[in-house]
């Protein structure tokens, strides 16, 4: 059974807006903790970079052939960054 086309649009929109924001936040967080720079520098680099990541994610989500692929394309880097963030945080605590 094929879903009606608007579900694909809705799914991609959610992926673009929320998923893109999540990915951008992860980048910002990883930069803030992981970059070997003074703390304020790392924080600002991450935050300024995040908007470009978000915009890129939105374009990606609407460019790929299917909504499934869009979600997968976001989830993979997000999982990697999430893992990295976990390492950074536990490393920082140790």
């Amino acid at each position: 059974m094929r879903l009606p086309p608007w579900t694909g649009v809705l799914s991609r929109s959610i992926a673009a807006i929320l998923g893109g924001y999540l990915l951008a936040s992860l980048v910002a967080a990883c930069c803030a903790l992981g970059l070997a720079l003074p703390r304020a520098e790392a924080v600002m680099t991450g935050a300024m970079l995040a908007f470009a990541i978000h915009a890129g994610a939105v374009v990606y989500v609407f460019a790929v052939r299917s909504a499934w692929r869009a979600w997968a394309g976001l989830a993979l880097p997000a999982a990697l960054l999430g893992g990295l963030l976990w390492l950074l945080q536990s490393g920082g605590a140790a």
Binding site: A24, S25, A28, A29, C31, A32, L33, R39, A42, V43, G46, A47, A50, F51, Q89
Partner: peptide, 8 residues
């Protein structure tokens, strides 16, 4: 985009 600042 406060997440980096909050964590750091």
């Amino acid at each position: 985009m406060p997440w980096g600042a909050q964590l750091a």
